[in-house]
Computed example of a mutant assay.
Amino acid sequence: MQLIGNGGERFDDVREIAVLRGGGLGDLLFAVPAIEAMAAAYPEARITLLGIPLAPAILQGRTEAVHAFEELPVTPGVRDAGDDAPSLDDFVDRLHGRFDLAVQLHGGGRNSNPFLLRLGARHTVGTATEDAEVLERWVRYVYYQHEVVRALEVVSLAGAAPVTLDPRVHVDDGERAAMRERLGVGGRPVSARLVAMHPGATDPRRRWSPERFAAVARARLEAGDDVLLVGDATDVPAAAAIVASVPEQLRDRLHDRTDALTLAELPAALAAADVMVGDDSGPRHLAVAVGTPTVGVFWFGNVVNAGPFDRGRHRVHLSFVTHCPVCGIDVTQVGWSAERCAHDPSYVDQVTAEAVIDDVADLLRTT
């Protein structure tokens, strides 16, 4: 494949590569295709991911592109909090001069570029907003760009061409079958399907209401399928509302594992599903990465940055909210410099449950 954007020549004699990508689960997954591109372009190099603890929990043993993990220190704009995180000075002292090439895939560079430069790598590539210190090779950070493509454009500066657009997180058939047995769906008829749901998102404005998820769950349970609920502790209230809305006679096929699965178990749980329904959130992006078809509920602006690329496996439902329903502020101006009002209504509840139900049924027929 061709390089994305202006690109650049490969650097010579690169044996150690650092990739900076903190943030949440979705942020990590958006970087995986770029990391795979680097691994293909520099096959003799060792790639170390500078991230937070969820990175090895999700990727260790599930990708050949990352060879080592280093936990980021707490430092403004790079990592905001973390118990037992290394100190900044210890982190820099230990890693300074180790890397031949350092790659910044973490935001616009205002904080991440100075942090990366402290590592003393021979070469650096990354993004830069207008107020950011620039690296050796850089591309302007413009908010409205798909995060996967943004990361691929960065690594193209180092001569790395794409090898995939979707993130890839490997789950083998044995893991998938074992998870279905653990959930109690392994012995069901072949015609029965497992539909996973994640009724949450970090930003409350991206959350589809629990009653809409519940309508989808009831439709699939009435059709004879099993439904799996996943999420962390913040998603427990939504999951409880979904369970409460399901008739008692159908609840034996509703498997609520919210706040019960570890991050390391989540890839297998999502891979065990035949379709996954979710908001614009990390678990939905992880479902894409493990190869599970998805139906996603998105605010339209987030599709630009985070939507799935194909429609044979992944369906998208859009909410076209342009102003906060409470105060009327323009919400299309988003990103690092945007004004943020104090209100958190759902921006996506104009998406109907019926539309999602139809696409779940269609994917179950066609994938």
Rank of each mutant, 00 (worst) to 15 (best):
H285A: 07
H285G: 06
H285V: 01
L286C: 12
L286F: 12
L286D: 08
A287S: 12
A287T: 03
A287L: 01
A287Q: 02
V288F: 06
V288H: 06
V288T: 09
V288E: 05
V288I: 15
A289H: 10
A289E: 05
A289W: 10
V290Y: 01
V290K: 01
V290L: 02
V290H: 02
V290R: 01
G291S: 03
G291P: 03
T292F: 04
T292D: 05
T292W: 01
P293Y: 03
T294F: 04
T294H: 02
V295M: 04
G296L: 03
V297K: 02
V297H: 01
W299V: 03
W299F: 10
W299H: 15
F300L: 05
F300V: 04
F300T: 08
G301N: 10
N302F: 04
V303D: 07
V304F: 06
V304C: 00
N305G: 15
A306P: 00
A306G: 13
A306H: 14
G307D: 06
G307T: 07
P308H: 10
F309R: 13
D310A: 12
D310N: 14
R311Y: 09
R311A: 13
R311N: 11
R311W: 11
G312H: 13
G312I: 06
R313H: 14
H314C: 10
H314A: 07
R315P: 00
R315C: 04
R315H: 11
V316W: 09
V316R: 01
L318E: 15
L318N: 08
F320G: 04
F320D: 14
F320P: 08
F320H: 15
V321K: 08
V321M: 13
V321Y: 00
V321I: 14
V321N: 03
T322D: 14
T322A: 12
H323M: 04
P325E: 04
V326P: 10
C327G: 11
C327L: 09
C327F: 11
C327Q: 10
G328D: 10
I329C: 11
D330V: 05
D330A: 08
D330M: 07
D330Q: 09
V331A: 05
T332P: 09
Q333H: 12
Q333W: 02
V334T: 14
V334A: 08
